[in-house]
Amino acid sequence: MKRKEIIRPISDENIKTERHIRKPAVKQIFSRNFLFAHPVLIRGLALAPALVASIDARNSLVLTIMLLVLSLPGSLFASFVGDRLPKFLRVPIYVLLAAGAYIPAYLLLEKIPYTVFGNLGVFLPLLVVSSFVYNRAEKESLTLPWYLALLDTLCGALSFGIFSFILGSIREIFGAGHFFGIPVNVPSHSGLLLPFAGFILAGFLAALIQSLIRYLRQHKDQQQNTGGDEAL
């Protein structure tokens, strides 16, 4: 019979103890971020930039790079000193650190050719306050040692990037008729570039990942049951 894992909410009082209890393995960090707790499709983080702004592949790459750069300072801060501050002070610090990191990231990306700042509009500065930045820092990195916090943030941003790239590519190819600016000879409909199309497409992708998770869990349960029967 499986023991049900009790997950206690993190509060200012129990951060230090939870840090020792909750330390995950590296494999768990990968499987959580890329599948079982996918930041967008399972946890529903950063939905505005992921679903509305990902209208082409280049947008997705810029969003991913920016999200990674903006979430790293907050995650490292939470890991190093987060437990010494109350929550009401931690959260504005994460956001202000992300806003500080936005400056060099923006200046650097401006210099790279083929950047698409014009297409991202208000969604680029909004990454600073996205739920992904808050979640990585407050919900994950707070109870992780700095190297695991770094890995978790990196995997989370990469996972976001893969999803955003897939969604952006589909919308660019079938919505605008090109991919990375290169014309593609497929039927296209510009309705796919509108926000509602992003929500609907993401719903189907979320269903796909959910069915994959169910299949893997059923397969694992069957293997465990088979192993139990053989032992008997």
Binding site: L41, G203, F204
Partner: peptide
């Protein structure tokens, strides 16, 4: 369908 239960259906 179970694959759509919860969050996927909400997104759609």
């Amino acid at each position: 369908p179970k694959a759509f239960a919860g969050f996927p259906l909400m997104l759609i």
